[in-house]
Amino acid sequence: MPLPPTWQQFLDEAGGLSRFTGRFFSQGFKPRYEITELLRQCYIIGYKSLPLVGLTGFIMGLVLTMQLRPSLISYGAESQLPAMVGIAVVREIGPVITALIFAGKIGSSIGAELGSMKVTEQIDAMEVSGTNPFKYLVVTRVMAATLMLPVLVILSDAISLYGSYLGINIKGVISMDLYFKQVFDALSFDDFVPAFIKTYFFGFAVGMVGCFKGFNSSKGTEGVGRSANSAVVVSSVLIFILDLLAVQITDILGLN
């Protein structure tokens, strides 16, 4: 029985992405190492996303606080506000929202950049000049995305906790010392570490999907736009799937 075309397409896609990922592991850790390009990509991917990630993190903390306050007041638990926000931000909202923003900004730019290099034969030109384009373009970008997203998430968490601190101070007073003491009292190692580890996987997924889509871009400028677009869509969905897996795994390991 033939599969419906959309399923066929989905499976083709998944197979292609898996093979591409396999190629990353088989080639990525052998010399020659593209250290200079890796550092340059870390700068581009990490540093350039800072303002966006910082801004969204700040607003997220602020808004979350303002939204939670009325419900907590109605339970008479307003003093729990820092603890609630802290847990929500560090365990879930910080990593996922930052990763989604990252997918939007970095996934699409990698997809578009490699896509246009593909259709204008620049990737072939690189190969022909004796440089392995997979190593030079893909491995460096995937590594940079994997290494930079966790850093961005930590920064975003910090900024959003600060935003939340300001949010509490809009209607009420709490000192910075007390606020952060309450936040960190509520958080434990088990809250922080799994959340931190999963961000590596999110970053890897964004880099990998962006490169895969760009590298397999179809001819023409329309193909480039499509790669950029589907890079964002697919990596965003993957982030949620990975998040679901992460929560299951931490549950099984008893880290809750």
Binding site: E121, D124, A125, E127, V128
Partner: peptide, 16 residues
Amino acid sequence: RTKIGFLFQSNALYDS
């Protein structure tokens, strides 16, 4: 490949 030059029909200059 370093001993073979290849001129692409589309030039394929690195535009960045």
